[in-house]
Design a protein around this nucleic acid. Structure first.
Lengths: 173, 173
DNA sequence: AGATTAAATGTTACATTATAACATTTGAGC
DNA sequence: GCTCAAATGTTATAATGTAACATTTAATCT
C-alpha cells in the first residue's frame, strides 16, 4: 500500500494532479482486492470524481457529474457509493461541510485532522500524531471509549495567506 | 460570569438538572446584557429547550417543542435563534449530528471537544487544553491560520460503559 | 409623546441533503 | 446453468436549511 504523499497543499498550481488521482485509484484498487470487496464501476467513478480536486465535493454535485457516465444515477446511487468508500476508508466525510474528500492515508490508520481553507476550499489531511496522542489521553482520562474522532479546522491555508506575487491564480482557484 | 460546572456526565441520574438549566440561562442573560445584545423571548425559549437535556437537539425537534409557546414558529424562527445563540457562544452546533447542544463554557474561551455517547446520546464538553495546545502547534507548523476548530468524538461514555448494577436506568435514559 | 429606524420576527416558497422500501440485475461460487 | 447475496434501479418522501420580502417591535432622537 503506497502512500499518496502530497508536497504542496495546492494541487492545481504545483503538483501533478493526474498522478495524484492515479495513485489514489491504484491504492483503492489494491485495498479492495486485498479485502475481497468490489470496487465496481460506479464506486470507481465516484472515487475518481472525488479525487478530481482536493476540494470537498457535495453528494449532489457528484450526482450531476456522474450522470453523463451513468444516466440512470439517482441520489441513492451516489450515497451508496459514498457509504462504501467511507466504510473502506477511501474517502472522508467532512462533517462541517456535508461534503466528501479523498483520503490521503487509505489503508492505514484512520485518525486524521482536516484543514479546510475558506479561500481556495482545498482540504488538507494530516495524521498529526501528537494531537491524536493528546486527544487519546484526554479521552482515556475521562474513561470514554472512542469509536471515531473528527477534527476539522476551518481557516486560511498557507498558500492563500501568502501575499506574494504569482499566487493570485492559486488564491482564485 | 460563573461557570456551570457539572460533576457527573449523567445529568438525569446524578445532578440537579433544574439548577443546570437555571445557571445556563442566568449566564446567558448576563453575557447578553454585557454585550448589549438581546436575549429575546424566542431566543430564551430556544436556549431553555436546548438545555432541557444534555443531549444534542435537532432543529426541527426544537421547532415542534417551541410551537406550544410560539404557535407562529416556522423553521426560520428556530434557525435564527440558533444562529444568534451560536454567534454569542451560548450553544454549539454538533457538526457530526446536525444538532445543537448548550455550551458549558459560555462567555469564556471557545475551543472545546465534544464527547458524544452513542448509547445515552449525551454530549460532554471539555476544554482539553493539552489537546488544543497540540492542535494549535500542528496548525501553526503548517502555517495554517485557524478560524474555528471542531473536535467531535463518538463512542461510549464512562457511565454507559459501567456494567454495575443500578446503572440500568442511566443506560436506558 | 411622536417620529425614525434598525433589529427582530412573520411568512411564503423553495433549495439542499439524505433515506426508506421494494424491484431488478449482476456476478461469484457451486 | 443455478443459486444466492450483493449491487443497482426506481419511486417516493423525509429531514435539514435558506432566500426573500413583509410586518412588527423597541431603542433612540427630537
Amino acid at each position: 500500500m503506497n502512500i499518496p504523499t502530497r508536497t504542496s497543499p495546492n494541487p492545481s498550481s504545483e503538483h501533478n494532479h493526474k498522478q495524484c488521482i492515479s495513485e489514489a485509484l491504484g491504492t483503492a484498487g489494491r485495498v479492495c482486492m486485498t479485502r475481497g470487496v468490489r470496487l465496481t464501476p460506479i464506486r470507481h467513478q465516484v472515487l475518481e470524481l472525488i479525487w478530481s480536486s482536493h476540494k470537498a465535493v457535495k453528494a449532489y454535485d457528484l450526482l450531476d457529474r456522474i450522470k453523463p457516465l451513468q444516466p440512470m444515477a439517482k441520489p441513492a446511487t451516489v450515497y451508496r457509493a459514498l457509504d462504501f468508500l467511507i466504510e473502506q476508508g477511501l474517502i472522508h466525510r467532512v462533517e462541517s461541510l456535508n461534503a466528501f474528500i479523498g483520503c490521503s492515508y487509505s489503508g492505514q490508520q484512520h485518525e486524521q485532522l482536516l484543514l479546510i481553507c475558506k479561500r481556495c476550499h482545498e482540504v488538507e489531511e494530516r495524521s498529526a500524531e501528537k494531537v491524536m496522542k493528546a486527544l487519546a489521553g484526554e479521552i482515556g482520562r475521562l474513561a470514554f471509549i472512542a469509536h471515531s474522532k473528527t477534527i476539522e479546522v476551518h481557516g486560511i491555508c498557507a498558500k492563500c495567506a501568502e501575499p506574494a506575487i504569482n499566487q493570485t491564480d492559486a488564491r482564485l482557484n
